[in-house]
Nucleic acid binder design. Sequence first.
DNA 1: TAAAAGTATACTCAAATGGTGTAGTTTTAT
DNA 2: ATAAAACTACACCATTTGAGTATACTTTTA
Lengths: 137, 137
Amino acid sequence: MRITQEADYALRVIAFLTEEGYGQIIEAKKIAEKQAIPLRFALKLLRKLQQAGLIRSYRGINGGYALNRIPQQISLKDVIEAIEGPIYVNNCLCDIAYCNLVTEGTHCQVHLALAKIQESLLNDLEKVNFEDLQKKK
Amino acid sequence: MRITQEADYALRVIAFLTEEGYGQIIEAKKIAEKQAIPLRFALKLLRKLQQAGLIRSYRGINGGYALNRIPQQISLKDVIEAIEGPIYVNNCLCDIAYCNLVTEGTHCQVHLALAKIQESLLNDLEKVNFEDLQKKK
DNA sequence: TAAAAGTATACTCAAATGGTGTAGTTTTAT
DNA sequence: ATAAAACTACACCATTTGAGTATACTTTTA
Protein backbone atom coordinates (compact mmCIF):
# COMPACT_ATOMS: atom_id res chain seq x y z
CA MET A 1 0.00 0.00 0.00
CA ARG A 2 2.93 2.25 -0.66
CA ILE A 3 4.23 4.06 -3.73
CA THR A 4 7.68 3.00 -4.85
CA GLN A 5 10.82 4.98 -4.17
CA GLU A 6 11.04 5.59 -7.90
CA ALA A 7 7.58 7.18 -8.01
CA ASP A 8 8.49 9.31 -5.02
CA TYR A 9 11.62 10.49 -6.83
CA ALA A 10 9.52 11.22 -9.91
CA LEU A 11 7.09 13.38 -7.97
CA ARG A 12 9.98 15.41 -6.66
CA VAL A 13 11.51 15.71 -10.12
CA ILE A 14 8.31 17.22 -11.46
CA ALA A 15 8.04 19.49 -8.43
CA PHE A 16 11.61 20.60 -9.08
CA LEU A 17 11.01 21.31 -12.76
CA THR A 18 7.94 23.27 -11.74
CA GLU A 19 10.03 25.38 -9.39
CA GLU A 20 12.64 25.99 -12.04
CA GLY A 21 9.87 27.27 -14.25
CA TYR A 22 7.80 25.96 -17.17
CA GLY A 23 9.92 25.82 -20.31
CA GLN A 24 13.24 25.74 -18.51
CA ILE A 25 15.56 23.00 -19.74
CA ILE A 26 17.48 21.35 -16.92
CA GLU A 27 20.10 18.65 -17.43
CA ALA A 28 19.75 15.27 -15.73
CA LYS A 29 22.88 15.79 -13.68
CA LYS A 30 21.49 18.86 -11.99
CA ILE A 31 18.10 17.28 -11.38
CA ALA A 32 19.69 14.17 -9.88
CA GLU A 33 22.01 16.15 -7.65
CA LYS A 34 19.40 18.53 -6.37
CA GLN A 35 16.95 15.76 -5.62
CA ALA A 36 19.56 13.33 -4.29
CA ILE A 37 18.74 10.63 -6.82
CA PRO A 38 21.45 8.32 -8.21
CA LEU A 39 22.17 9.71 -11.67
CA ARG A 40 21.65 6.52 -13.70
CA PHE A 41 18.44 5.81 -11.85
CA ALA A 42 17.24 9.35 -12.51
CA LEU A 43 17.96 9.00 -16.23
CA LYS A 44 15.82 5.89 -16.39
CA LEU A 45 12.98 7.50 -14.53
CA LEU A 46 13.16 10.65 -16.64
CA ARG A 47 12.65 8.55 -19.72
CA LYS A 48 9.50 7.08 -18.23
CA LEU A 49 8.18 10.54 -17.51
CA GLN A 50 8.98 11.50 -21.06
CA GLN A 51 7.26 8.48 -22.54
CA ALA A 52 4.19 9.40 -20.54
CA GLY A 53 4.29 12.84 -22.13
CA LEU A 54 4.86 14.72 -18.89
CA ILE A 55 8.28 16.05 -19.82
CA ARG A 56 10.27 16.32 -23.00
CA SER A 57 13.96 15.87 -23.55
CA TYR A 58 16.56 17.82 -25.50
CA ARG A 59 19.66 16.02 -26.67
CA GLY A 60 23.14 17.31 -27.29
CA ILE A 61 25.06 20.06 -25.61
CA ASN A 62 22.80 22.29 -23.52
CA GLY A 63 20.26 19.49 -23.57
CA GLY A 64 18.19 18.31 -20.66
CA TYR A 65 14.59 17.96 -19.66
CA ALA A 66 11.69 20.39 -19.44
CA LEU A 67 8.02 20.11 -18.53
CA ASN A 68 5.86 19.22 -21.50
CA ARG A 69 2.66 20.51 -19.88
CA ILE A 70 1.93 23.41 -17.60
CA PRO A 71 2.21 22.36 -13.93
CA GLN A 72 -1.51 22.89 -13.44
CA GLN A 73 -2.14 20.05 -15.85
CA ILE A 74 0.07 17.51 -14.12
CA SER A 75 -1.46 15.63 -11.19
CA LEU A 76 0.08 13.35 -8.59
CA LYS A 77 -1.78 10.53 -10.30
CA ASP A 78 -0.24 11.33 -13.68
CA VAL A 79 3.25 11.07 -12.27
CA ILE A 80 2.72 7.94 -10.18
CA GLU A 81 1.05 6.14 -13.06
CA ALA A 82 3.79 7.22 -15.46
CA ILE A 83 6.21 5.27 -13.27
CA GLU A 84 4.17 2.41 -11.84
CA GLY A 85 1.44 1.95 -14.40
CA PRO A 86 -2.25 2.04 -13.50
CA ILE A 87 -3.02 2.10 -9.80
CA TYR A 88 -5.00 -0.83 -8.44
CA VAL A 89 -5.71 -1.24 -4.75
CA ASN A 90 -5.75 -5.04 -5.04
CA ASN A 91 -4.93 -7.69 -7.59
CA CYS A 92 -8.51 -8.59 -8.23
CA LEU A 93 -9.38 -5.03 -9.30
CA CYS A 94 -6.55 -5.21 -11.81
CA ASP A 95 -7.43 -8.53 -13.33
CA ILE A 96 -10.54 -10.39 -12.29
CA ALA A 97 -8.71 -13.64 -13.10
CA TYR A 98 -6.87 -13.14 -9.80
CA CYS A 99 -10.13 -13.37 -7.97
CA ASN A 100 -10.97 -16.87 -6.90
CA LEU A 101 -14.20 -15.68 -5.41
CA VAL A 102 -16.05 -14.22 -8.33
CA THR A 103 -19.73 -14.92 -7.80
CA GLU A 104 -21.91 -14.96 -10.89
CA GLY A 105 -19.68 -12.58 -12.82
CA THR A 106 -19.55 -9.88 -10.17
CA HIS A 107 -17.08 -9.09 -7.41
CA CYS A 108 -17.58 -10.15 -3.81
CA GLN A 109 -18.53 -7.55 -1.21
CA VAL A 110 -14.95 -7.11 -0.06
CA HIS A 111 -13.80 -6.31 -3.55
CA LEU A 112 -16.69 -3.98 -4.21
CA ALA A 113 -15.70 -2.08 -1.08
CA LEU A 114 -12.08 -1.94 -2.22
CA ALA A 115 -13.22 -0.67 -5.61
CA LYS A 116 -14.84 2.30 -3.90
CA ILE A 117 -11.74 2.96 -1.83
CA GLN A 118 -9.69 2.90 -5.00
CA GLU A 119 -12.00 5.27 -6.80
CA SER A 120 -11.80 7.76 -4.00
CA LEU A 121 -8.01 7.43 -3.81
CA LEU A 122 -7.62 8.04 -7.54
CA ASN A 123 -9.87 11.04 -7.22
CA ASP A 124 -7.72 12.50 -4.48
CA LEU A 125 -4.54 11.90 -6.46
CA GLU A 126 -6.04 13.56 -9.52
CA LYS A 127 -7.14 16.62 -7.64
CA VAL A 128 -3.63 17.65 -6.62
CA ASN A 129 -1.63 19.34 -9.35
CA PHE A 130 1.84 20.82 -9.29
CA GLU A 131 0.77 24.40 -9.64
CA ASP A 132 -1.13 24.07 -6.35
CA LEU A 133 1.87 22.43 -4.75
CA GLN A 134 4.11 25.24 -5.89
CA LYS A 135 1.78 27.92 -4.60
CA LYS A 136 1.95 26.54 -1.10
CA LYS A 137 5.63 27.30 -0.79
CA MET B 1 0.11 1.04 -4.19
CA ARG B 2 -1.59 -2.30 -3.73
CA ILE B 3 -2.54 -4.38 -0.71
CA THR B 4 -0.86 -7.77 -0.54
CA GLN B 5 -2.55 -11.01 -1.46
CA GLU B 6 -2.32 -11.98 2.19
CA ALA B 7 -4.26 -8.90 3.30
CA ASP B 8 -6.83 -9.58 0.62
CA TYR B 9 -7.22 -13.14 1.92
CA ALA B 10 -7.54 -11.78 5.45
CA LEU B 11 -10.34 -9.42 4.49
CA ARG B 12 -12.23 -12.31 3.01
CA VAL B 13 -11.60 -14.46 6.06
CA ILE B 14 -13.17 -11.83 8.30
CA ALA B 15 -16.04 -11.40 5.86
CA PHE B 16 -16.54 -15.16 5.93
CA LEU B 17 -16.53 -15.36 9.73
CA THR B 18 -19.03 -12.51 9.75
CA GLU B 19 -21.30 -14.45 7.44
CA GLU B 20 -21.01 -17.56 9.56
CA GLY B 21 -22.15 -15.49 12.49
CA TYR B 22 -20.50 -13.79 15.46
CA GLY B 23 -19.45 -16.39 18.05
CA GLN B 24 -19.33 -19.29 15.60
CA ILE B 25 -16.13 -21.31 15.79
CA ILE B 26 -14.89 -22.40 12.37
CA GLU B 27 -11.84 -24.58 11.85
CA ALA B 28 -8.96 -23.38 9.67
CA LYS B 29 -9.50 -26.14 7.14
CA LYS B 30 -13.02 -24.99 6.36
CA ILE B 31 -12.03 -21.33 6.21
CA ALA B 32 -9.16 -22.10 3.86
CA GLU B 33 -11.25 -24.28 1.60
CA LYS B 34 -14.17 -21.90 1.33
CA GLN B 35 -11.94 -18.93 0.61
CA ALA B 36 -9.56 -20.85 -1.65
CA ILE B 37 -6.51 -20.06 0.46
CA PRO B 38 -3.65 -22.57 0.80
CA LEU B 39 -4.15 -24.12 4.24
CA ARG B 40 -0.70 -23.47 5.73
CA PHE B 41 -0.80 -19.91 4.49
CA ALA B 42 -4.23 -19.44 6.01
CA LEU B 43 -3.01 -20.72 9.37
CA LYS B 44 -0.23 -18.17 9.41
CA LEU B 45 -2.53 -15.35 8.48
CA LEU B 46 -5.11 -16.42 11.05
CA ARG B 47 -2.49 -16.12 13.75
CA LYS B 48 -1.76 -12.57 12.70
CA LEU B 49 -5.44 -11.72 12.91
CA GLN B 50 -5.50 -13.28 16.33
CA GLN B 51 -2.47 -11.39 17.57
CA ALA B 52 -4.16 -8.20 16.45
CA GLY B 53 -7.16 -9.15 18.58
CA LEU B 54 -9.58 -9.42 15.68
CA ILE B 55 -10.28 -13.12 16.09
CA ARG B 56 -9.63 -15.67 18.81
CA SER B 57 -8.58 -19.28 18.50
CA TYR B 58 -9.74 -22.46 20.17
CA ARG B 59 -7.33 -25.37 20.34
CA GLY B 60 -7.99 -29.08 20.45
CA ILE B 61 -10.77 -31.12 18.93
CA ASN B 62 -13.66 -28.92 17.81
CA GLY B 63 -11.27 -26.00 17.88
CA GLY B 64 -11.05 -23.27 15.29
CA TYR B 65 -11.38 -19.53 15.01
CA ALA B 66 -14.12 -17.06 15.84
CA LEU B 67 -14.52 -13.31 15.67
CA ASN B 68 -13.29 -11.59 18.82
CA ARG B 69 -15.27 -8.41 18.16
CA ILE B 70 -18.66 -7.77 16.65
CA PRO B 71 -18.37 -7.20 12.87
CA GLN B 72 -19.47 -3.61 13.28
CA GLN B 73 -16.27 -2.96 15.21
CA ILE B 74 -13.90 -4.38 12.62
CA SER B 75 -12.89 -2.07 9.78
CA LEU B 76 -11.04 -2.71 6.54
CA LYS B 77 -8.17 -0.75 8.04
CA ASP B 78 -8.03 -3.01 11.13
CA VAL B 79 -7.66 -6.10 8.99
CA ILE B 80 -5.14 -4.70 6.53
CA GLU B 81 -2.98 -3.31 9.31
CA ALA B 82 -3.20 -6.58 11.24
CA ILE B 83 -1.47 -8.22 8.29
CA GLU B 84 0.75 -5.54 6.82
CA GLY B 85 1.42 -3.28 9.75
CA PRO B 86 0.68 0.44 9.68
CA ILE B 87 -0.23 1.86 6.29
CA TYR B 88 2.08 4.48 4.85
CA VAL B 89 1.65 5.89 1.39
CA ASN B 90 5.38 6.46 0.99
CA ASN B 91 8.59 5.63 2.78
CA CYS B 92 9.17 9.13 3.98
CA LEU B 93 5.85 9.21 5.83
CA CYS B 94 6.87 6.02 7.62
CA ASP B 95 10.31 7.15 8.66
CA ILE B 96 11.54 10.64 7.95
CA ALA B 97 15.06 9.22 7.73
CA TYR B 98 14.10 7.97 4.28
CA CYS B 99 13.56 11.52 3.18
CA ASN B 100 16.63 13.11 1.70
CA LEU B 101 14.78 16.32 1.19
CA VAL B 102 13.75 17.36 4.65
CA THR B 103 13.84 21.12 4.76
CA GLU B 104 14.27 22.69 8.17
CA GLY B 105 12.65 19.78 10.02
CA THR B 106 9.51 19.71 7.94
CA HIS B 107 8.45 17.67 4.92
CA CYS B 108 8.66 18.97 1.39
CA GLN B 109 5.49 19.97 -0.45
CA VAL B 110 5.25 16.64 -2.22
CA HIS B 111 5.35 14.76 1.04
CA LEU B 112 2.87 17.07 2.71
CA ALA B 113 0.49 16.38 -0.16
CA LEU B 114 1.03 12.64 0.19
CA ALA B 115 0.37 12.92 3.92
CA LYS B 116 -3.06 14.34 3.14
CA ILE B 117 -3.77 11.61 0.62
CA GLN B 118 -2.80 9.05 3.24
CA GLU B 119 -5.01 10.61 5.88
CA SER B 120 -7.99 10.52 3.59
CA LEU B 121 -7.25 6.93 2.57
CA LEU B 122 -7.02 5.79 6.17
CA ASN B 123 -10.26 7.54 6.88
CA ASP B 124 -12.00 5.73 4.07
CA LEU B 125 -10.62 2.39 5.20
CA GLU B 126 -11.77 3.01 8.75
CA LYS B 127 -15.27 3.94 7.73
CA VAL B 128 -16.07 0.56 6.20
CA ASN B 129 -16.89 -2.16 8.73
CA PHE B 130 -17.92 -5.75 8.21
CA GLU B 131 -21.46 -5.35 9.40
CA ASP B 132 -22.04 -2.85 6.58
CA LEU B 133 -20.41 -5.21 4.13
CA GLN B 134 -22.64 -8.05 5.26
CA LYS B 135 -25.80 -5.96 4.98
CA LYS B 136 -25.18 -5.28 1.33
CA LYS B 137 -25.53 -8.91 0.35
C1' DT C 1 -5.01 -41.69 25.37
C1' DA C 2 -5.22 -40.93 20.54
C1' DA C 3 -6.75 -37.89 17.23
C1' DA C 4 -8.07 -33.40 15.90
C1' DA C 5 -7.32 -29.22 16.20
C1' DG C 6 -4.00 -24.87 16.69
C1' DT C 7 1.32 -23.01 17.48
C1' DA C 8 6.10 -21.87 16.40
C1' DT C 9 9.80 -21.34 13.61
C1' DA C 10 12.38 -21.81 9.81
C1' DC C 11 12.86 -22.62 5.07
C1' DT C 12 12.31 -22.13 -0.20
C1' DC C 13 11.49 -19.91 -4.48
C1' DA C 14 10.17 -16.28 -7.64
C1' DA C 15 9.24 -11.63 -8.64
C1' DA C 16 9.81 -6.84 -7.78
C1' DT C 17 12.68 -3.05 -6.63
C1' DG C 18 16.55 -0.14 -6.62
C1' DG C 19 20.57 0.61 -8.68
C1' DT C 20 24.80 -0.05 -12.32
C1' DG C 21 27.54 -0.81 -16.63
C1' DT C 22 28.53 -0.52 -21.45
C1' DA C 23 28.01 1.07 -25.72
C1' DG C 24 25.69 3.76 -28.34
C1' DT C 25 23.25 8.52 -30.79
C1' DT C 26 22.28 13.43 -31.22
C1' DT C 27 23.41 18.19 -31.00
C1' DT C 28 26.06 22.26 -30.99
C1' DA C 29 30.17 25.30 -29.96
C1' DT C 30 34.25 26.02 -31.95
C1' DA D 1 34.56 18.92 -39.33
C1' DT D 2 34.71 17.34 -34.85
C1' DA D 3 34.92 16.76 -29.97
C1' DA D 4 32.45 17.07 -25.98
C1' DA D 5 28.15 17.33 -23.63
C1' DA D 6 24.17 15.82 -23.29
C1' DC D 7 20.36 11.95 -23.82
C1' DT D 8 19.18 6.65 -25.24
C1' DA D 9 18.92 1.65 -25.15
C1' DC D 10 19.43 -2.48 -23.09
C1' DA D 11 21.24 -5.68 -20.23
C1' DC D 12 22.82 -6.84 -15.84
C1' DC D 13 23.15 -7.39 -10.56
C1' DA D 14 21.93 -7.53 -5.57
C1' DT D 15 18.48 -7.18 -2.02
C1' DT D 16 14.13 -7.34 -0.30
C1' DT D 17 9.48 -8.76 -0.25
C1' DG D 18 5.77 -11.89 -1.03
C1' DA D 19 3.68 -16.26 -1.31
C1' DG D 20 3.78 -20.56 0.04
C1' DT D 21 5.73 -25.07 2.38
C1' DA D 22 7.94 -28.25 6.01
C1' DT D 23 8.81 -30.01 10.48
C1' DA D 24 8.11 -30.53 14.98
C1' DC D 25 5.60 -29.21 18.50
C1' DT D 26 1.20 -28.23 22.25
C1' DT D 27 -3.56 -28.29 23.71
C1' DT D 28 -8.06 -30.17 24.15
C1' DT D 29 -11.65 -33.43 24.30
C1' DA D 30 -14.20 -37.58 22.82
